[in-house]
Design a protein around this nucleic acid. Structure first.
Lengths: 342, 342
DNA sequence: TTGTAGGCGTTATCAT
DNA sequence: ATGATAACGCCTACAA
């Protein structure tokens, strides 16, 4: 049906090997025959079949980035950096989205076989997998911006991220320093084990250190049936808070998007930010700057994280290291959405 | 090296065919042997090699969505719908990002061979390709939310989108009706041939119909070196407008993101929206609702567009039609960012 | 119900 | 510099 390398070989009156050499820029080939072959290929729109290639090839210089869930602004920037860095290393780059309820390891294992991957980057999610399963993953991989809970054995994993616990503490500490004592938090449901949990723990500790007692009614959890960490989630949850008539002076949302949803709910309720309520976010995505008022947030050093991720991955590929880790500091950016309580 | 179907067959003391039958849920197989085989497969973590499968398989029930450029909020929602609809049809779904400076047709052709695709959806971009090239694309495809300029021959393409020209006209007509005469537009550079151009044409026509003369200095083009249609682009361009001291009363940005960037620039310049300047966007993405002030925009019926795209694609796959087109009406949503000029 | 063998399109190993 | 041929791992007639 479709045209193959054999057809091209026949048309050119050469062997398939020669055609293959032409395609793959092998050295052992006469420049003229090569040019001739390429010409015929062009004229006949021959396109090599990747499946056949992958099947035969022992290895290919490609690395895959698996991204869990919906692509968001935060990941978009990282992906750009990944792509650039990987291309610089003369590798090719596959971006694979893995569904929320899909097992990223399964996908990874399959992909390694199919594409003969050299390495993998896992982006987002919580990444809880039995060791037995991970052992099937025969290529180096790095966890990037995945919440690092205690369970993570540094000898088993390579990762680069920020210290969600510490950075979250930093934000709440700042809020307390502003005089806030009734600080609502919007975070993941309590069964979460990833960044949601870590950031919540940071919140708890900061309150404790400032001698303010935790008020359960100010601990707000995202709705499971709404996209997680989304503006809508922050919006809905804040509406409920307002209705509950529980008193508070600040809202700390565990993502910028939710912080924006919170602002919207507040404004719709006739409140002003920051005059009536302070609002803070986390991540430092673009919109936190563009929003009105601009959102006080914790900015993750996205570019650095992405670059370091690739650096570590290639170190592993080249056997320079077996595992490596890097925790980047994040930056508290004070903007218009928070104010000193007087 | 890796474990194959032959290994499994040996371990089970059966032929490869039987193993293959077990894997692929073929009917002609004893339930017990099947169970036994599956057990061995599980124990040994055998994962079939997709390349080999695709190579052999004549056809596979999979359709691919190619998305040009960066994933944005607008596409995210559509992708969700695509995935749902495609799964309902018992097809599998591949999401392939294609780089800004990559040829989507090339990618598509390769993918068809590699994955034995049944159909393709092209999302975004301008899609200008010589007919000769398109003829190599041997499977049905639908263009979704791609600017439909005059060059598009309805007999050659299937597409579903909104009428960018008309909807853009609608917005500017509305702005004029509010009494605005000096309406700046932020759009694509003049060499653009896609939605940027169409929306700009709608703007021109609306001005003309309202008897207001086009002021070149109010036609603002996105910067090529900044991500297109982004908040940053709207922000930078608006800053320049402010500095030029050209008079205007409204800004119409050809995307919601740019409208938000414009708002930010205005606010930073000490102006109020909409008291001092009205601002309008296009697309109707979430953030246009959540922004403060909420943004007057043209809402594209994303879900319907996505659903219709899939419907048409499957009609083509099933040979019910050779080509089909659908233009959806979009909705003018009046919100807080625009006001009557008095 | 089960097994054997040929072929999918390429690349790599040898010869030549 | 070039070509024949054997894999790569799987599926599917066809045979048993």
């Amino acid at each position: 049906m479709a045209i193959t390398i054999i057809d091209i070989a026949k048309m050119c009156g050469v062997g398939v090997t020669t055609v293959s050499r032409a395609i793959n820029n092998h050295p052992d080939i006469n420049e003229e025959t090569k040019a001739m072959i390429m010409q015929v290929i062009k004229e006949n729109h021959y396109v090599p079949n990747n499946s056949a290639r992958n099947l035969k090839r022992a290895a290919s210089k490609t690395i895959a980035v698996l991204i869990k869930g919906i692509t968001n602004a935060f990941f978009n920037r990282m992906i750009q950096v990944f792509e650039k860095e990987i291309q610089t290393k003369k590798y090719s780059f596959i971006l694979q989205r893995v569904d929320e309820n899909q097992d990223e390891i399964e996908v990874a294992i399959e992909l390694v076989k199919e594409k003969r991957l050299k390495g993998i980057v896992f982006l987002g999610g919580n990444f809880l997998h039995p060791k037995e399963k991970l052992d099937q993953l025969t290529v180096p991989f790095v966890l990037s911006t995945i919440g690092m809970t205690e369970e993570f054995d540094p000898d088993e994993y390579s990762y680069v991220a920020v210290d969600d616990y510490k950075e979250s503490y930093k934000m709440v500490d700042y809020l307390c320093g502003l005089g806030h004592k009734q600080i609502a938090i919007i975070t993941a449901p309590m069964d979460d084990v990833s960044i949601g949990k870590l950031r919540y723990e940071g919140y708890k500790k900061a309150l404790e250190d400032h001698g303010v007692e935790l008020n359960d009614r100010l601990v707000l959890c995202m709705k499971e049936d709404i996209e997680s960490y989304s503006m809508e989630n922050g919006y809905v949850v804040t509406k409920e808070l307002l209705q509950s008539e529980e008193e508070f002076t600040a809202i700390y949302a565990v993502s910028d998007s939710m912080a924006i949803g919170a602002c919207k709910a507040l404004v719709e309720g006739g409140k002003r930010v920051p005059e009536d309520y302070s609002v803070a976010g986390f991540d430092g995505v673009d919109i936190s700057f563009y929003y009105n008022p601009s959102i006080t947030t914790i900015r993750q050093p996205v570019e650095e994280i992405a670059e370091e991720t690739i650096r570590i991955l290639f170190d592993m590929i080249h056997k320079k290291v077996t595992h490596a880790h890097k925790i980047f500091p994040a930056e508290l950016i004070v903007r218009e959405s928070t104010r000193l309580l007087t």
